[in-house]
């Protein structure tokens, strides 16, 4: 543990230095920025709870993407799966006006899970049966999902009392209950953490989890062991897409209380990086999501109070990931050198 910390310490220092330089470039004082950052995140209850409100969809999405990645299904479609989950949750809540709120929430969650899962299953099957790369198809499915939401909120599901492309508010009893009024914190965060723990157990303690891992690391080994590759892929897609769909449910029932366009704003793509930084580990996903959400909340405060563009977050996320991706650079450089020496010797 100590060794690990020592290894990432220089990286943290580099990121902080880059962040400070960016703040100076934007005409701000880095020390004041740090103060405001901590005031915005840890200094008041609202800001602190907002971290978890923002982290919740990232946890669901990050879990979904990491399950897919583990099985070698490179799912960049979490964004679309979220949208489809949001559609299913909204439609379920509005379709069953007579039932009690708790029942509607449970049914909406199930509907979101199944719909998100099916939305991921199509690209997975295209990959398995027709050998079409899932990278591009999942991205295309994102756009198709956004199209479906766009049409629904302008057509059958639109709030007829206004001209805006959004559905009416869902009733209070079908919303996820608030946990710490007056902040926005709601039950979603508990569900997300529960999902992470369940997933951890599934992946590490059951045969299904073992199969998913083998299929992901070496499809050939899985084939030779007689493991059902298609079944693993189906499970991974349904589970991964389903978890992303839960994020859609979370946004509709917990945050926005209605379906509207731009309900995700790119979190589905952030999730790919969350999964990478967490090394596809469910508990790691929770930690990384909370940290990223804290950075987002802090940066928003910095934008409001110091006029530093909040786009600094995207820049830093990209920078951090590129840095993490290149941390093996010395090791690989040595390998290359060794390979070259071997070649020279052979000649």
């Amino acid at each position: 543990m100590k060794k690990k910390l020592l290894k990432i310490l220089p990286q943290i220092v580099i990121v902080l230095v880059v962040a400070a330089l960016l703040v100076i470039m934007a005409g701000g004082n880095p020390l004041r920025a740090i103060k405001i950052f901590f005031q915005g995140t840890l200094g008041n209850l609202n800001g602190f709870m907002e971290i978890f409100v923002k982290a919740t969809p990232l946890i669901f999405l990050g879990l979904g993407v990491s399950v897919s990645f583990r099985t070698g299904f490179f799912n960049i479609g979490a964004e679309g799966q979220l949208y489809m989950g949001a559609v299913a949750a909204t439609a379920t809540v509005f379709a069953l006006p007579g039932l009690p709120g708790a029942v509607r929430i449970i049914l909406a969650t199930l509907a979101a899970f199944v719909t998100g899962g099916l939305w991921a299953l199509i690209p997975a099957m295209l990959k398995r049966k027709m050998n079409i790369s899932e990278t591009v198809t999942t991205i295309m499915f994102n756009y198709i999902a956004i199209m479906i939401v766009g049409i629904l909120v302008r057509g059958p599901l639109q709030d007829k009392s206004g001209a805006l492309p959004q559905t009416p508010f869902i009733p209070d009893e079908a919303s996820l209950p608030l946990l710490a009024y007056p902040t926005r914190l709601h039950l979603g965060v508990v569900l997300a953490i529960a999902a992470a723990i369940l997933l951890y157990i599934l992946l590490t303690k059951t045969t299904v989890g073992y199969e998913l891992k083998i299929v992901g690391t070496s499809p050939r080994a899985a084939f030779c062991m007689g493991l059902p590759i298609t079944r693993s892929l189906v499970i991974s897609a349904l589970l991964g897409g389903g978890l992303a769909g839960m994020a859609g449910m979370n946004e509709v029932l917990g945050v926005q209380h209605r379906l509207l366009e731009g309900i995700s704003s790119g979190n589905g793509y952030t999730a790919v990086l969350v999964a990478l930084l967490a090394r596809n580990h469910p508990i790691g996903v929770v930690i990384v999501s909370v940290l990223l959400a804290a950075v987002q909340v802090g940066a928003n405060t910095m934008q409001r109070q110091m006029g530093i563009p909040a786009s600094i977050v995207n820049l830093l996320i990209g920078f951090i990931v590129v840095m993490v991706l290149s941390q093996d650079i010395v090791k690989i450089y040595r390998e290359h050198k060794k390979a070259k020496e071997l070649e020279v010797n052979q000649k």
């Binding site: 960016l22 934007a26 786009s311 820049l315």
Partner: peptide, 19 residues
């Protein structure tokens, strides 16, 4: 992984150009 690297690039570029 090509996909992860590509997605990272997207964040970096959107961030740096907007900034």
């Amino acid at each position: 992984d090509h996909n992860v690297s590509g997605v990272a690039l997207n964040f970096f570029s959107l961030g740096i150009t907007s900034f």
